[in-house]
Amino acid sequence: MKKGFIRYSLAMMALAGLLSGCAQGNGQSTEGTSAAKTEGTSSKGGEGTVKIAVAGPMTGDNSEYGIGFTNAAKLMADQWNAQGGVLGKQIEIVPYDDKNTSEEATTIAQKIVSDGDISGVIGHFSSGVCMTAAPIYQENKIIEISPSASHPDYSKIGNYIFRNNTVISKEGAASVDIAVHDLKKKNIGIISIMTDWGTNTSGIIKDLVTGLNDPNVKVVAHEEVMEGSDDYTPAITKLKEAGADVVICCGMYNLVAPVAKQYKNIDPDIAIVGFSNAYSQQLIQLGGEAVEDVCFPVIFFSESDDADVKAYVDEYKKVYGNSPSALTSQAYDSVGILLTAMKEAGTTDSEKVRDKLNEITYKGVTGNIKFDEQGDVDKQFNKVTIKDGKFVKMN
């Protein structure tokens, strides 16, 4: 059991998505928003429902993530509802916009616990926001499953706190492996956003490189930048002067895209490695030719030949017009495992559902999900790159 108590803007895209049904991006997409309606309301309503909250940024620079979470949750709920729902009740997805800020997340979490009728929370998005809201859920014994939190301390907050995502050290190891073994680079530069996640992740990358015990492989420079900046040239110049032949970007697509554009104006041959939170069609739309050959480790790849993945992707495209991203798909599976735990427990009682979550193994589109005693999962990564404006698996 678990222990311990612990903005290049897309605003117009997000607004357009919320009004017209078309904003989440992915490993192939700009996903629809038919599931993301007024905060704290749902598409159904009425009594006799099982309510699941989806908390994330539905507006603002990171809106594609929250909208994607909501779309995926609704898709899973619709599939269960077509088969009779869970425990004889229809499932209702209730979206909340936390704007990806800790202040708003605190308010949202308090709203959710005050509702008294929410059977679980899928979200939030960023680790720092998750770690602000999680103590409130823990204190009120409400299950939270984040599809995206990767900070190692997140799941330590309590035994109602789960993550359907790998801890950043594992993804970081995959990124370093791509840089060193796949791309055959030796002089590693790091550029990271000035957030708790960015600082923690960059530190992990440094430790991982040191742990290789290869005197020829080293971190030659690390630059911290403000997320959403228009000009990364000063940081890029320092990385270039330090002799970096590969840069690991600790940030989302709105960091990777402009960094790739600006860096390749200075050094066209620079190799760039990102993380799964940058694996988004928005990256290609914003970066264009500059993001060709950018690489990432991802748990979910929408072009997989797996029959279950193909069926899911086809259905998602049918409903929302585009393919789902890795984090969106982890939200889809998070709803699936939560509903399965409710079904097997025969109740929505949070303690009994929590206990069931600790026992079951769930076969999802992002792999087999089995929470360990800390509420974490271990998953395998695919290595993906961009060729001719499309995501493809690395050879």
Rank of each mutant, 00 (worst) to 15 (best):
S102H: 06
G158V: 00
A16C: 02
G60H: 08
K186G: 05
H181R: 12
V294W: 04
N62P: 01
A149S: 14
M394N: 07
D293L: 00
P234L: 07
Q330V: 01
V220S: 08
I248D: 09
N165M: 12
A221L: 02
L338W: 07
D230A: 15
I112G: 02
T101R: 13
G60R: 06
K317S: 10
H124I: 02
K206G: 08
S126T: 15
H124L: 09
A53Y: 04
N216P: 03
T366F: 10
Y65P: 01
A235E: 10
K264D: 05
D182I: 01
G56A: 08
I272R: 00
Y312M: 11
L327F: 13
A221P: 00
F301V: 02
Y8H: 10
I178W: 01
P324T: 01
D378N: 13
P215R: 10
I191N: 07
F162Y: 12
D245V: 03
Y332D: 01
Y279E: 01
F301L: 11
K111I: 00
E227V: 07
M58R: 14
D333V: 02
S155F: 04
V273Q: 04
C249M: 12
A77V: 13
G116Y: 08
V392M: 12
D230N: 14
I386M: 08
V129C: 09
D314Y: 03
I52V: 13
L286T: 02
L338S: 07
L208C: 12
K370A: 11
P152S: 03
K383Y: 15
V384C: 08
Q262C: 09
A173N: 11
G228D: 04
I190L: 15
A53V: 09
S276A: 15
V176K: 01
M394C: 12
P234T: 03
Y320V: 00
K261P: 07
N382Y: 13
I91A: 10
P135H: 06
S146N: 04
G4C: 05
